[in-house]
Simulated scan of single mutants.
Amino acid sequence: MANVTFKGNPMTLRGEELKVGDQAPDFTALNTSLEQVSLSDFEGKRKLISVIPSIDTGVCSTQTKTFNERAADVENVEVLTISNDLPFAQKRWTADEGLENAVTLSDHRDLSFGENYGVVMEELRLLARSVFILDEDNKVVYVEYVPEGTDHPDYDKAIEALESM
């Protein structure tokens, strides 16, 4: 499993760690309209899945904005930001930041995404900062489990992986 800390404290991640070449598991989460969505709702598109602990923190906010901005010009890509924030908080944040078209998904209800992707920090019941890039057939082509939860992911490597597909 990935070794992850949050503010220097070791975290226990629940679920199976994904690796490049794996078939991405399905999941369910809620969108900002409280509708259940799953991975199959984005079928036929490349996916950049940006996982954050909480949308209302500086690094998470920057990560969400950065990936949405940098992937905007890449063809056939859906950027999904997933956290355990309530859908109401995600909706408020996207409106406040002028990113109403950003796709934010909440995993708070049953941790389906977090457990299937190995990112639930047991001690905090938050999702560990990570990035997954999936091809049109949901094969994992890039994975980053950020070692320290308060650090930024490697934006350049993730976007390079996305653009090279």
Score class of each variant (00 low, 15 high):
Ala71Cys: 12
Ala72Thr: 01
Asp73Met: 06
Asp73Asn: 11
Asp73Glu: 13
Asp73Gly: 11
Val74Asn: 08
Glu75Ile: 01
Glu75Phe: 06
Asn76Val: 08
Asn76Ile: 06
Val77Glu: 00
Val77Gln: 03
Glu78Cys: 09
Val79Ser: 10
Val79Ala: 06
Leu80Gly: 07
Leu80Ile: 05
Thr81Leu: 09
Thr81His: 08
Thr81Pro: 09
Ile82Cys: 04
Ile82His: 01
Ile82Leu: 03
Ser83Ala: 07
Ser83Asn: 05
Ser83Ile: 08
Asn84Gln: 09
Asn84Tyr: 08
Leu86Lys: 02
Leu86Asp: 12
Leu86Phe: 04
Pro87Ile: 09
Pro87His: 09
Pro87Lys: 11
Pro87Met: 12
Phe88Pro: 04
Phe88Glu: 12
Phe88Gly: 04
Phe88His: 10
Phe88Ser: 08
Phe88Leu: 13
Ala89Trp: 13
Ala89Gln: 11
Gln90Lys: 14
Gln90Met: 12
Gln90His: 14
Gln90Glu: 06
Lys91Cys: 09
Arg92Val: 02
Arg92Asn: 07
Arg92Asp: 01
Arg92Met: 07
Arg92Leu: 05
Trp93Arg: 00
Thr94Leu: 11
Thr94Ser: 12
Thr94Met: 11
Ala95Pro: 08
Ala95Thr: 09
Ala95Gln: 12
Ala95Val: 05
Ala95Cys: 09
Asp96Glu: 12
Asp96Tyr: 15
Asp96Leu: 13
Asp96Trp: 15
Asp96Asn: 15
Asp96Arg: 15
Asp96Ser: 15
Glu97Ser: 12
Glu97Ala: 14
Leu99Phe: 15
Leu99Tyr: 15
Leu99Met: 15
Glu100Trp: 07
Glu100Gln: 14
Glu100Pro: 05
Ala102Met: 05
Ala102Lys: 05
Ala102Pro: 10
Ala102Thr: 09
Ala102Tyr: 03
Val103Pro: 12
Val103Arg: 14
Val103Asp: 10
Val103Ile: 13
Val103Leu: 13
Thr104Met: 14
Thr104Asp: 06
Leu105Ala: 03
Leu105Asp: 03
Leu105Arg: 06
Ser106Val: 00
Ser106His: 07
Ser106Tyr: 01
Asp107Tyr: 00
Asp107Glu: 09
Asp110Ile: 02
Asp110Ser: 04
Leu111Asp: 00
Leu111Thr: 02
Phe113Leu: 01
Phe113Gly: 01
Gly114Ile: 06
Gly114Met: 08
Glu115Trp: 02
Glu115Thr: 05
Asn116Leu: 00
Tyr117Asp: 00
Gly118His: 13
Val119Ser: 13
Val119Asn: 14
Val119Trp: 13
Val119Arg: 07
Met121Ser: 00
Glu122Tyr: 00
Glu122Ala: 06
Glu123Ala: 01
Leu124Phe: 11
Leu124His: 03
Leu126Arg: 00
Leu126Cys: 05
Leu127Gly: 06
Leu127Val: 05
Leu127Ile: 04
Ala128Tyr: 06
Ala128Lys: 03
Arg129Glu: 07
Val131Leu: 11
Val131Ser: 13
Ile133Arg: 15
Ile133Gln: 11
Leu134Glu: 00
Asp135Ile: 07
Glu136Asn: 06
Glu136Ala: 02
Glu136Gln: 12
Asp137His: 13
Asp137Trp: 14
Lys139Gly: 02
Lys139Met: 07
Lys139Ser: 07
Val140His: 02
Val140Lys: 02
Val140Cys: 08
Val141Ile: 14
Val141Asp: 09
Val143Pro: 02
Val143Lys: 01
Val143His: 04
Glu144Tyr: 10
Tyr145Cys: 04
Tyr145Ile: 00
